[in-house]
Structure formats: C-alpha cells, structure tokens
Amino acid sequence: MKERLSREAIAMRIAKELFDGAVVNLGIGIPTMVSSFVPEGMTIIYHSENGMLGFGSVLSADEVEEKADIDLVNAGGQYVRPKPGMSFFHHADSFAMVRGGHLDVAVLGAIEVTDCGDLANWMFPGRGVGNIGGGMDLAFNTKKVIVAMEHTTKDGRPKIVKKCCVPLTAERCVDLIVTDIAVIDVTYQGLVLKEYAPGWTVDDIQALTEPELKAAPDLKEIELL
C-alpha cells in the first residue's frame, strides 16, 4: 500500500534538515509548518522578510484574541510570539541579510523544479499573474534552498521536470526536494533519490518524475523523527 505524506509530515521531514543556530526563512504554505516540528532544545533563528529576526512561534487560533498584535507578524501575516533576543529592522536591511548570504536555509514552495535545481514558484498556474515577493532573492542567495511540495499536480502531472514551463524564480538554486513521496538531493550529477514514502519503489517514484532519478547507495524509507 503506497502512502503519501501529509503536508505536516513533509514539514516534519524538512525540520530534520535544520541545525542548532541556523538562520532560516520559511515561505508560505507547507514551509511555515516546519517551525512546529523543530526538536525541543534546538535554537533556530527565523528570518522574516518584513524585518524581524529571532521571533517566536506562530500564535494558535485560541491565543489570537488575547495576544495578537498587528505589529508582530511574519511574512505571511500570521501573528507570532515575541522572543528574547529578537530584533527588528527595515526591509533593505532584511534583504541585505538575504542577498549578503547570511541565511543558512530557505524552505520554499514550488510549482516546478528541474534536475538542475531550477525553481519556478511565483507565477500562479492558469492565472497568468503572480507575486514575486521575496522568493527570488531567497532562492538566489540563501546557502541551502529546500523545496517543499506535493510530488505531482492535482491532475497527476510531475512537478519535477526537465524544463520549467512557467517563468523561473531562479536558475540552479535548489539543493533538496522534499515531497509527499520522496526526498531528493539535487547534485551536479542530477537527481539522487535518498528516501521514499512507505510502500513506494524507485520505479513508482520515477514514473511520476520527468528527469532521471539515481537511487542513493543508502536509499531508505523516509524517517520523520
């Protein structure tokens, strides 16, 4: 029986890529959920485009009434908790951090990714319009770019492709792809399948992936914890 990881489980798997003291920017959607799965005791310094570093977790729905403050929001507009050691700064400084290469990890959503690590994630499919936001700067300039996404589109087409059909966010920027069925390293030799969801074979995953996958020597089932 082939299982697909939930969006939360994708976020859990990505949380394992973070390390103590890492400066991390999380995009909207699955990436935002990653912060919920960081192990106790590990300090992650979150960066938000709107000029905030080292803030606390997102408020839960029942905390909003009492604690929410419109002057303490992340880039997705969610209310967050203040945290000792946090800092505020203006937008140009915020992107000096990004462009200057001071961020360790960016977790971004994707519409398409190629085996070269090209990323397309800003043009809404079918709408002919899109928001670039901070994604282009993050994709171009962060030390490690992790893509979090479903492996295929809603109608079952591969999202990992040989060439992006929609406008690019950045060329050759993606380091790791985590989907609902696989964990894939983007290397100079192409895509390396490192982990598979329960019940999936290399052939199953290859059938839903346009470029060729190489199985890693230590290929294993995805471990979330």
Binding site: E49, S94, F95, G130, M136, D137, P167, A170
Partner: peptide, 30 residues
C-alpha cells in the same frame, strides 16, 4: 513587478543618492 529585495534596495539607493546598482537576483529570469 520587482523582486522584494530589489524593490527595497532600489528605494534605499534612491534615498542614498546611488543611481543604480548590480544584484544577482533575477539574472536568468524574466
């Protein structure tokens, strides 16, 4: 439409008397 970091730096440059600057962001894209 402008990438956010480029938008903020273009504004910063405008205020700081820098007429233009080079950035890697956006190279190879539209």
């Amino acid at each position: 439409i402008v990438p956010q970091g480029t938008l903020s730096e273009r504004i910063r440059a405008g205020g700081a008397g820098i007429p233009a600057f080079y950035t890697p962001t956006g190279a190879g894209t539209i």
